[in-house]
Every structure is written in C-alpha cells, then in structure tokens.
Write a protein that binds this DNA or RNA. Structure first.
Lengths: 198, 198
DNA sequence: AGGAGAAAGTAGTCATGGACAACAATGTAG
DNA sequence: CTACATTGTTGTCCATGACTACTTTCTCCT
C-alpha cells in the first residue's frame, strides 16, 4: 500500500478538523476557507460538504473540540496541583490564561460560536469545560476560603475575572510580560474579597 | 434641489460608517459587505474604496468610533454619578456592561481589530476610552477605598473584571437577568479585596 | 474667468470562495 | 452478487473584495 490517496480518504472529517485548527491558530477563523482546506488535505472542493453542511458547521465543530480540550487542560491542571485550594486556584487560572494565550483565535471562535442558536452540542461542551471551575469553588467553600452560598454565583465572579484577563490578553490590552502579575493580583483580590464579610 | 443623488454624495464616508454600524449591530461584523453597503447608500460598488482602501480599514474606523463612543459613555456615567467613589464605580461598571450588551458585536470588533498591527489610531482611541477607569482608580486610592500603589496595576484588575463580565454576556455564558447580580457581586468582591491587606 | 489637477464616483474585470446539484466510485448488508 | 448508502468529484452559479481605467465634479491658482 503506497501513500497515494484512495477514493475514500478514510478519515476526512478528522483530517479537515486538524487542518482547520492549524489554520485558525495561524491566521484566525476569518481566513478559514473550505476550499483551501480541501486542497491541503488533497481532496476535491466539494468533499468537505459531506461532513460539514456549511462553513459554520465546521467552525462549530472546531469550537466544540476546543471546549473539550480546554476542559481537559483545566482538569489536568487541577490534577497536577496539590490538594490545597489556593494552589489549585492558581493552577487553574494559569491554565485558563495559558490556553487563552496559546489559542487566542480558537478561544475567540469558541465564544463567538455560542452566539448562534441551535448549537446544543456546543452548549453541552462549554458546560463540561467549565465544570472544573464549579468543583473548585465548592472545595473552596468546604475549606472556608470562600464564603458559603450559591457556588454558581461565586463561580461566575471567578470565571468573569479569569475570562477578563484572557480577553485583555487576546485583545492586546496587556503585554505578555504583565500577565503573570495581573493574574496574581486578580487572584489575590478574589481571595481577599471572598472571605466572609465578617 | 431635489432628493436625487448628485454625482458627489457629499458625505459618503460618514454615510458608509453609519450604514456599516447598523449592519454590524444587526448581523455582526462577519456579514458586513462593502458592496452591499454601497448599494444601501446608493453608490457604485467601487466608491467605498475612495474612503477605505479595503474592508479592514472600514472595520478599523468602525472600531475607532466605537472606542470613542464607549469613552463618552463611561465619562457620561461618571458625570451623572454623584461624587462618591463607590457610586461612581458602580455607575461606570454598569455603563461598560450596558455598552457590551447593547453593542456586543461592535465590542467584539473593537477588541478583534486591535490584533492587527499598524493601527496606531486605534491604540490611541482605545487608550482614550479607558482612561476614565484609571481616573476612577486614582480617586479610589485618594479616598482610601483602594490600597495605594501603581494605579495601573489595580486598574487592570478592575478592567479585567468588568471586561470579563462583558465577555460572559456577549458569549452568552450568563443570562441577561443574571448580569445585575454578577456585576454587584463582582464589585463587592473587588472592593472587599482592595482595602489594604492590613 | 478659466484651466489644470485633485478628489470622488463609475464601470468592468479577475480571482476566490461558499452553496448547490448531478454524477461516479466505493463500501456494506442482505 | 446485487441493491443501497456513503463518500468523493465535477461543474456551475452567484456574491464579494481588490484592482484598473475612465468620467464627472470641485477647487484653487494665476
């Protein structure tokens, strides 16, 4: 069996997604062209349509994969961190921001994709990706680092903070060398602001 | 003088920007088409090129106008709020989030535009828009609501928080009816976390 | 005035891309 | 081994952004 293409690619869908992710990383989602992708993968311009009804479907799939990877990385960060809440908080926030820096265009795409309706799978994937945040909040409450109450509410505050840092980074409002400091400051703020009002 | 078009439109640049802003608001920046704009304004498809060398230039101009309006609205919010720091903080954050909700696609465009290089005017406009945040921080420090130190550092923490809420809103991670609560919680966190560690 | 240029619009063209349809090759199940 | 479903291919249509050459209008200078 040589390298030459069979009529059936074998795993076109996956190949397209991989090529697409590369392109998005290098040139952003706006520049993504189905025809160019088809050429890269060595397939005719109509082929992708068998796997993605239109361009947006491909982008949605990409976003979904992105959420899955983000979720994995957050979980991985928690697993590698020690058991202590504060360390885990730092680890997770850092992991999130790292993702935002390394895959800024993908993260943009992930958030943009959610605007569209009929993206149930995306909603699902996003929820999965962010669940580690909620788990962490609950640990923080159990260990009295965070005030008691609806974890969702406190989680949103943390989530907003971290996502805000990510936005500032991808929007180039902060320089790369300021990120570590900003992250540390924000977490410190969050923690100090979170011990019960008493 | 009737309504019929003269050869020279008179104020094509402005007309294009206005039509573009409408379209962006209604359908997002991705759907913006120079040719369609030209048709709307009643001018030939090549005309916009006299005012914007390419599509991106139009988007940049739109983003720049967006920053100017955002800056105005933040300043306006401060002006309408009383003199007290906490009230002003709430007012400004609310104004920012309101902008993010009402003009989510524009805000996205504003942040996306900054990725591109050679956008000196944009940088400038962005800086202007965000300067009220810094002023407010300095007031907060003067009135001892905020710890002393580099205002830029503390400002970034606040900015990240507010921008994070905006991101969550535009990314549909929070429902509209949760925004007020999230905003209040976040500001409370910020304030509690900001009184000197002592 | 009036005439030279600059400014602003028009018309035509090209290449690229997304969407779609008709058809061909391959895989699969009965 | 044959019918049918999958997966690719080719060809086409249309919209768009970018570019060029040409035309109309404005303005400013003498």
């Amino acid at each position: 069996m040589t390298t030459q293409r069979a009529y059936h690619h074998g795993n076109l869908r996956q190949a397209l997604l991989e090529a697409a992710e590369r392109t998005v990383r290098e040139r952003g989602a706006g520049d993504l062209s189905l025809r160019e992708l088809a050429r890269e993968v060595g397939v005719s311009h109509g082929a992708p349509r068998r796997h993605f009804p239109d361009r947006q479907a491909l982008l949605d799939a990409l976003a979904e994969a992105g959420f899955e990877r983000l979720g994995s990385e957050l979980r991985e960060a928690l697993r590698e961190a020690g058991p202590g809440f504060v360390g885990r908080l730092h680890a997770m926030a850092a992991a999130y921001v790292r993702f935002a820096v390394d895959d800024s265009t993908l993260l943009e795409l992930m958030f943009a994709g959610k605007h569209r309706e009929g993206a149930a799978a995306l909603e699902q994937a996003a929820e999965q990706a962010f669940s580690p945040i909620m788990e962490l909040i609950e640990q923080g409450q159990a260990e009295r680092f965070l005030e008691p109450g609806d974890p969702e509410r406190i989680g949103l505050v943390l989530f907003a903070t971290v996502q805000g840092i990510a936005s500032l980074v991808t929007g180039q409002m902060v320089r790369a060398d300021q990120v570590g400091e900003l992250l540390a400051d924000s977490i410190a703020h969050f923690l100090r602001g979170s011990r019960g009002v008493a």
